[in-house]
């Protein structure tokens, strides 16, 4: 690494103006992390916001920014499904075809859309407006079947509503997510937000849809609440102590993790899953 500005000798094919803007954005991204390499995922979203996919120039730019080889950046870019290696349409229409949505109608929706648009998975209509995808579970199962347009939620879809949605997108009309911003932005604009550049639209849209509030609605109706603060926990009956000291037989510090570890990762079985962790 040298102190010389990267832009001065970039091997990318970006014009000077584009490059200068990218370099400024990259500086901001790298500044968010103790180690600049942590900025690689946002940097890839950023370059995707320029050309609508992660191009050769995008790869080279990220490599130059982080002092990596193009191969190292490509290895990361190809691991994640949101990075496209060929030009994407203006709108990604993703139909959830993981089990629950598929069973509830996602398969029928995908088939109808595929037929209607005459494209298959990860293919783009000739006019460049729509890229159709099968997507995995997007954490909206209580709104199944779900369609995502540029990763905004379109809940409770049918083959008819989805084809109408696609037609509106192709004709350039604005569409409004069920839960999300007031309108769907372009794939490039979305990629820029995912790079961490706020577009100021967080206050658009609702906080929750019906299913999200279903349990709360019932609780309100029946007067059910959480216990009322400190007093609520039966006074005088201390809870059984369950915090073993580290190093004792019960401590998990010394215990071999059960399969999934305690973290849950994805998968896990034992836990897991979700990814979560914890």
């Amino acid at each position: 690494m040298t102190a010389e500005p990267v832009g001065a000798r970039s091997r990318t094919g970006y014009d000077a103006e584009t490059l200068a803007a990218l370099v400024a954005d990259a500086e901001e991204i790298k500044g968010r992390y103790p180690d600049p390499r942590s900025g690689l995922l946002p940097l890839l979203h950023l370059v995707q916001s320029v050309e609508g996919y992660v191009s050769r120039d995008g790869i080279v730019f990220c490599a130059e920014q982080l002092g990596l080889t193009a191969a190292e950046v490509s290895a990361v870019a190809t691991f994640y499904t949101q990075y496209k290696r060929h030009p994407n349409g203006e709108y990604t229409v993703g139909v959830c075809t993981n089990t629950l949505c598929a069973v509830m109608g996602g398969d029928a929706i995908f088939d109808r859309l595929s037929q209607h648009l005459d494209v298959g998975h990860d293919e783009t209509t000739p006019d460049g407006s729509v890229t159709l995808e099968r997507v995995e579970c997007n954490a909206a199962c209580d709104y199944a079947p779900v369609v995502m347009v540029n990763w905004e939620f379109f809940d409770n879809q049918t083959p008819e509503s989805a084809t109408e949605l696609a037609d509106r997108l192709r004709s350039g009309e604005q569409v409004t997510p069920t839960r999300g911003a007031d309108s769907v932005c372009s794939f490039k604009q979305m990629s820029r937000v995912l790079a961490g550049f706020d577009d100021g639209r967080a206050d658009e849209g609702a906080g929750a849809g019906g299913p999200t509030l279903e349990g709360l609605r019932i609780a309100r109706e029946r007067g059910w609440t959480a216990p009322g603060g400190e007093q609520a926990g039966a006074p005088g009956t201390p809870r059984v102590e369950v915090t073993p000291e580290t190093g004792t037989g019960q401590s998990s510090a010394e215990r071999k993790p059960t399969t999934p570890s305690d973290d849950t990762g994805p998968a896990g079985q034992a836990d897991a899953k979700e990814g979560d962790d914890d």
Partner: peptide
């Protein structure tokens, strides 16, 4: 606090992959 967006990979829910 830094909010970081992933890029589509279930495995990243496993804490060390994350």
């Amino acid at each position: 606090v830094t909010v970081h967006a992933g890029a589509g990979a279930y495995i990243c829910g496993e804490e060390t992959a994350l």
